[in-house]
Amino acid sequence: MTEDRDTDATPLTSEAKTPRTARGRKTLRAILDAAAAEFGERGYHDASISHITQRAGVALGSFYTYFDSKEEVFRALVRDMSAQVRDHVTPRVQAAPDGIAAEKAGLESFLEFVRDHKEIYRIIDESEFVDQQGYRQHYESSVERIRQRLVASAARGEIRADIGEVHAWAIMGMNVFLGLRYGVWDDGAAPGDVATVANEMLRRGLAPD
């Protein structure tokens, strides 16, 4: 299973502020991780740059080396978290033996990611009002990857031939709410068990005619 990992790649900072050294990249990573914790805990409006730098253990000036404002780091964080999900899920999806199995692997690995990064739901939800373009891109790029996988699977005869964008959005919607229920609200169920139940529904619903 293959998918294009670069089609939705967006720089986290302007070219002028892109880290040129390993130390700079480490600092930027620390700021983004601290921003995720700050926005996830306090929400966009109550979060502050000073709290982000305190969490990151960097000077205030280091923040402004990469970002001009709280809104700018929030926008970068939305793109960064989308990329983290993609990079976490992609290897498992690519290793799957067929299209249906790929969706199971994708959901299972997504649930695992959410349990370790529960703040992603609050951040993505708030981005609808702070960074609507980033909000839409997060979902649209994810759906496009699902659609491409489904089309490739249909071409191999693994699933029904009339597959399309609606099917991809339906799978995305299912994954989002399963992530909320079994990743954020309650993480008692094994991700593999949840993915197995959902995948059986897909297998039956997408079976070739």
Rank of each mutant, 00 (worst) to 15 (best):
E158P: 00
R156Q: 12
Q132H: 12
G57K: 06
F110N: 06
P208S: 07
V114C: 00
F177K: 12
E200P: 02
R160M: 04
I163D: 11
S141E: 02
L202P: 00
T90L: 01
T53M: 08
R42A: 14
T90V: 11
E144G: 07
I159C: 13
I49K: 04
Y44E: 06
G43C: 13
M172D: 12
A105K: 10
L180E: 05
S127R: 00
G192H: 06
W185V: 14
A35L: 03
S50R: 14
L202M: 10
K118L: 07
Q94A: 13
D4N: 15
A170L: 15
D193H: 10
P19S: 10
S69W: 09
G106V: 03
G99Q: 07
P19M: 12
D193T: 14
D46N: 11
E144V: 02
T27R: 09
Q137G: 06
Y64I: 03
E72P: 01
R181V: 13
F177P: 01
Y44S: 07
F74E: 08
R181A: 15
D98T: 02
A154N: 07
A35F: 08
F74T: 07
K104S: 04
D33C: 03
A102L: 08
A101I: 02
I31L: 15
R156K: 12
T18K: 15
A34N: 04
D46R: 13
V89G: 06
V93E: 04
Y66K: 03
L150G: 05
V58T: 12
S82L: 01
H167F: 07
I100L: 13
G205F: 08
A96W: 09
F39Y: 10
A95H: 02
V58N: 05
D209V: 11
T53C: 13
A195K: 10
D4G: 08
R29Q: 14
K118C: 00
G173V: 04
A59S: 14
S14K: 11
S141R: 08
A95T: 01
A16D: 14
Y121W: 10
R160T: 01
E128M: 09
R147T: 10
A190N: 13
R25P: 00
R92Y: 15
A35V: 03
E103L: 15
A105T: 09
E200Q: 15
E119M: 09
D116G: 13
D46C: 01
D6A: 12
A168Q: 13
D80E: 15
H117L: 03
R149G: 10
I163W: 13
D186E: 11
P208C: 09
K26D: 14
A47K: 07
E108V: 04
A168V: 13
T13F: 05
L28I: 02
G134C: 11
R92E: 14
L28Y: 07
G192I: 09
V85L: 11
G43K: 13
A30M: 07
A9W: 09
F74H: 12
Q137F: 04
S127M: 01
H138W: 11
T2H: 08
V143P: 01
V130P: 05
T27V: 11
M201Y: 11
D116C: 00
E165I: 11
T90D: 04
